[in-house]
Amino acid sequence: MRFRTFCYFWSEALRNIRRNVNLISLGTIAASLFILGAFFLIILNLNHLTDNLTSRIEIRVFLKDGVTARDREALKTRIWALGGIKTIDFISKEEGLKRLKEQLGDDEGILTAMDFNPLPDAFSIKVAKPESVKALASRIARLPGVESVNYGHGLVERLFALVKAVWVITLALSVIFISAIIMIIGNTIRLTLIARRREVEIMKLVGATDWFIRWPFLLEGMLVGLTGAIVSAVALYFLYGFAVRRFMSALPFIPVVTGGVALRQLCIGLLAAGATMGAIASVVFLRKYLRA
């Protein structure tokens, strides 16, 4: 491609954008990408939170009173045999009491006031896959010698379900917003085609290749998509930083993704998505016309 031709493509694209692109369409594109980006940030944080919680998750298996050391070993073997288990630790009632006292700290007086140990013997189990906690716990509960099982009230399951739901919503929104963006950019391409009908007709008749005709439209679509994406990425970048700071000072014990690499990758992803959608829109809308 000659430099002059390269310049021609760009000047055509910019001229067409100045003519046919308005703030409403750019704003709609930016807003759509912004909302999508926000949903991906929510997913990012939910994943972060789940990871954080699952590393701490455990099943506590309380044993019946009077279970002998041999029964205990047998039970341990049967639990191992269920599979999906990382570690099993035995916590005797004495050990359990000691830990409880440590946790209570200054309030340990409540316990010293009691003259017997209310805690049963227990196993503390770490699982390999957090998703399997519930199923595993209910199978362990049915084993002989087990009094009861505690596994954090299904918090992790609920978190997983939430992540799944947010994914579904995000994908559904992606379909809607991506189609909307492609329609909006396609429409500016259509307007340009109408305004440039004569030029394009003459170009074809004097022997311009399809790609020569296509380039300015392709650039136009990509630039429009990219412009919308830049606006959304910048807004997302700064608003997220602001939101994270507010969140962390209000709820410091909940872990959040503070931005950094993940946020930058998301912003770059948005830019790429905007440009790609613009390219798709222009190719799709031109196709019919060029083949005519």
């Binding site: 031709t5 030029e199 003459i202 170009m203 004097v206 020569f212």
Partner: peptide, 24 residues
């Protein structure tokens, strides 16, 4: 004729060469 109304005489003729990527 199929001339472009917003291009000069020179540009109308040059257009046929430009769009086939002819050297300047």
């Amino acid at each position: 004729f199929k001339l472009l109304p917003n291009k000069t005489v020179y540009d109308n003729v040059a257009f046929a060469l430009q769009v086939i990527d002819a050297p300047g």
